[in-house]
Design a protein around this nucleic acid. Structure first.
Length: 648
RNA sequence: GCUGCUGUAGCUCAGAGGUAGAGCACUCCCUUGGUAAGGGAGAGGUCGAGAGUUCAAUUCUCUCCAGCAGCACCA
């Protein structure tokens, strides 16, 4: 038999028979390694201990101590073990797929009865039994026909469908965890006992469509989390608990920022504190936009369907628009209007007033555009996904050869704003053409290439998000993350050759002829509502001083101090600081506790001493330490701190 | 929209087929207290909405509404 040479991480190499498995390699090194081994990395590829190696390769043996490999295998094997447990308890349940995800795995099942929380406990118990059995994991490659027949005989239609979707030249690999069998790419552990039995937890059940298609069967998805040991699991569960405290819905109530109620689902009642954040942010954005060369406009809320038909939105989004029908005087039919779900068609109307010259381009038209969309009920989420919201929207009308410049300019613009607002890192996704779209493939080629080139030229790294573009053009998404790690699209930049065509926007070129402008749709915050939600969660309610709705509370310790408290508040207010007096008949302990919970960044305490010396005692949120400062000093210090970053 | 769960006082939650309870918050009184809850009294609810079963429903059933988790959607 021919030999191959395997190179180990330390640089040494050894010869083995061709077709040797990592299990045999480990065995040849030491008994203990072969026991501990969970998988191998062969030429950079994650390799099952049972898979034969056919050629000279590099090889590294993984154990449970190797984070990445171990976590993937633990979670992947748990998915199989869970599916086996479920089928052992309920043999009629049909299995589908069960991939590894962040922190754990899920598996989708088809079962008539819903899984209950008690069922999860029973499944977990059964899983532990399976782990304790230390059943061997084995694998084989099967012929397609055999696999299809097998699954047909076992009444597993989903598996049959999966096989049919696998390209014909790819081998079908079967895995057994003990007697239980599943179609799977692998790799897997050597036996079920390698899974830490005390470091996983089944978290929840939820519906999920088969193959992600809402026209197909709704399956039941069980989510689990798993780690290498009990401590890491506990740390993760702890982190979740802490994250729940940062939930903007909870903090919104505690900080008295806003509320929502049944009569206006998906819409926000902003309280004074919340609205102060909103307006502060809006003032900041307005200054930035002016500096960035934008002109601000405002457009109608209720617009005739004819415009939405022309733009193409009526066709695609009618179901998701608030329709307003009006009996107009002298009209035979009702007038059908829609609340604007976005601003672009209206901006084109402004562009179209009067003739535009190439000298007008690029024309950057901004609007704090109040939009309404009838979002599906299940999509609503706090103030992050709502039916009434305001975009910091703008459309840049430009020539094709200006796309690159404008893209670069926008990425700089957005980066500076995100930095000011405390977001140093953010994800960027590039979404290309979706299945249903407007515009020819030529136009799409042009748009995608232009946007991609400009983004790369701007030195901005992105991940691909295939098929997720807007119906009229590709988009760049600037993604921020909430307290528990869910992604939210905030900023965006979209190249659009379609809408100018549909709404007949033109400009006169240097050649004296009519030309089509390109439209760049762009937003930095996305919507004020979503962005404020993210901002609250990012800072756990402790907003930067300049954004804090209540910046300072001046609290009396004795009622003799009341007059001076008001003097301090007035001095701060005059200096542009948002300050309030608290002269209630309460102890200072009580006031400190209450304003700390309300996330007020600075408390100034005033007792006899301060009145006498014309000072204040300063207590910063989260600090036990206090310090005494003169009134004049604290006013100028806090006034400086209250200055928005762009005005410093 | 789909699957599942939830809906009791402003908030957090307990409760039971015979028309409701706690803590905090609120109001009043006492207390003027030096950095995360001083004491006392009082007020507060068509038990999400509608229908049905029942002598009797807030409790059981159905429909609807809203919220939560996930899926789908996100111009």
């Amino acid at each position: 038999m021919s030999q191959i040479s395997l190179t180990f991480p330390d640089g040494n190499s050894r010869n083995y028979d061709k077709g040797v498995t990592p299990a045999e390699v480990a065995e040849s090194i030491s008994k203990s390694l072969s026991k501990k081994a969970i998988s191998a990395i062969v030429d950079g590829k994650h390799w099952d201990m049972q898979w034969p190696i056919a050629a000279d390769s590099s090889i590294a043996i993984n154990t449970l101590a190797d984070d990445e490999a171990a976590l993937e295998l633990i979670r992947h094997d748990l998915a199989h073990i869970m599916a086996r447990a479920v089928q052992e308890i309920w043999p009629d349940v049909k299995v589908t797929i069960g991939p590894v995800i962040d922190n754990g795995w899920y598996y989708d099942f088809d079962r008539a009865e819903p899984f209950t929380p008690e069922d999860l406990g029973a499944i977990e118990k059964k899983m532990k039994e399976i782990i304790n059995k230390r059943d061997p994991v084995t694998t084989e490659i099967w012929e397609r026909d055999r696999a299809v027949k097998y699954y047909e005989a076992n009444n597993e239609p989903y598996k049959v469908e999966l096989i049919e979707a696998i390209p014909g030249d790819e081998p079908l690999r079967m895995y057994w965890h003990g007697h239980w069998q599943d179609l799977c790419r692998g790799p897997h552990l050597q036996h079920t006992g390698q899974v830490p039995a005390d470091a996983f937890k089944l978290m929840s059940v939820a519906g999920a469509y088969w193959r992600g298609d809402s026209d197909r069967a709704m399956l039941q998805r069980i989510y689990g989390v798993a780690f290498q040991n009990k401590e890491k699991l506990r740390a993760y569960l702890n982190m979740l608990e802490e994250a729940a405290k940062r939930d903007h819905r909870k903090l919104g109530r505690e900080m008295d920022l806003f509320h929502m109620q049944e009569e206006a689902p998906g819409q926000i009642f902003w309280h004074p504190n919340g609205w102060r954040i909103y307006t502060t942010l809006q003032d900041y954005m307005r200054r930035q936009q002016t500096k960035g060369g934008y002109v601000e406009v405002n457009t109608p809320q209720v617009v005739d369907r004819k415009l939405w038909e022309a733009s193409g939105h009526w066709d695609k989004y009618q179901e998701h628009m608030f329709i307003v029908e009006v009996d107009e005087e002298h009209a035979r039919e009702k007038a059908v209007n829609a609340l604007k779900p976005m601003n672009c068609p209206c901006h084109v109307q402004i562009f179209n007033q009067g003739l535009k010259s190439y000298r007008n381009l690029p024309l950057r038209m901004a609007e704090f555009g109040s939009c309404n969309r009838y979002e599906p009920s299940g999509a609503l989420h706090g103030i992050m996904r709502v039916r009434g919201f305001t975009q910091d929207d703008a459309h840049i009308f430009c020539r094709e050869d200006q796309i690159e410049d404008e893209t670069r300019r926008f990425i700089d613009f957005l980066s500076e704003i995100y930095r000011d607002l405390g977001f140093e890192d953010f994800k960027v996704k590039f979404s290309d053409r979706p299945e249903t779209r407007a515009g020819s493939d030529d136009v799409w080629d042009k748009s995608e290439n232009a946007l991609k080139a400009a983004t790369t030229a701007a030195g901005c790294e992105f991940e691909l998000n295939p098929g997720e573009g807007a119906f009229y053009g590709p988009k760049l998404e600037f993604v921020l993350t909430d307290a528990i790690g869910r992604d939210w699209q905030c900023g965006t930049l979209q190249v659009d050759f379609v809408l100018p065509e549909r709404l007949d926007a033109t400009y006169i070129g240097a050649d004296g002829g009519k030309h089509r402008p390109v439209m760049l749709h762009r937003a930095v915050l996305g919507s004020f509502e979503r962005f404020i939600g993210i901002l609250i969660e990012e800072h756990a309610g402790k907003l930067p001083f300049w954004l804090a709705p209540r910046q300072v509370v001046v609290a009396s310790i004795v009622s003799e101090a009341d007059e001076y408290v008001h003097e301090v508040v007035d001095a701060l207010t005059t200096a542009g600081v948002r300050a309030e007096a608290d002269i209630r008949n309460e102890k200072i302990n009580f006031k400190v506790r209450e304003h700390s919970l309300g996330k007020v960044p600075v408390i100034l305490a005033i007792g006899h001493r301060e009145v006498e010396d014309r000072t204040v005692t300063v207590r910063r949120l989260g600090e036990k330490q206090t310090s005494v400062t003169s009134l004049t000093e604290i006013v100028s210090a806090l006034a400086k701190e209250a200055t928005p970053p762009d005005l410093l």
